[in-house]
Amino acid sequence: MNSMNNTINEIKAALKPLKMETPAFRQIAVVVKPDTVHNALSYLKQKGFTQLSIVTCVDWIKESEFELVYILFSWTEGIHIQLRARIDRDKPVMVTATDIFPGAQYYEREVHEFFGVEFTGNEDAAKPLFLEIWDDLPPLRKDFDPQAYSDSKFPMRERGNEFVSEIGGHDDE
């Protein structure tokens, strides 16, 4: 755990985070300002956090903010880092991380598709990925109601006049 404390202190000194905590065993959460995310990522990569596990987003609709989450892992020390930054929900723009972690490309594309966050510098991010011919709000936003969408788009067929009828699993000849 000594190296863990060292890492925490070093990160604290270098990044000057807004908030820092250890939510779980060998895990550090660092909250930074959105404009320092890019620097923080390249600093952490130098520190040995060479693996980008996931880029994702949380929709804090009450505060009208998106929280971008970058999770990094250091294989040498075995520490996970959550790097978090809040951006404005109405104009969600973020600088891409693909120049530091090329693997971020598809995560960013996914976040764009599901939340509508734009990543400057990632040309592919605006292309559709999982969804095809999507015509509604980005689906993982909190104000999107999947139940209503499903009900309107895929209504249950009215009963009666059915082609399929029920038969038993056994032989009933």
Binding site: P23, S53, I71
Partner: peptide, 20 residues
Amino acid sequence: AGMVYSAVESSRGEYGYFIV
């Protein structure tokens, strides 16, 4: 309330959930 990332080693690599 809280945010946590948990990961285990699956047969193909690091499998993780970020839970809020």
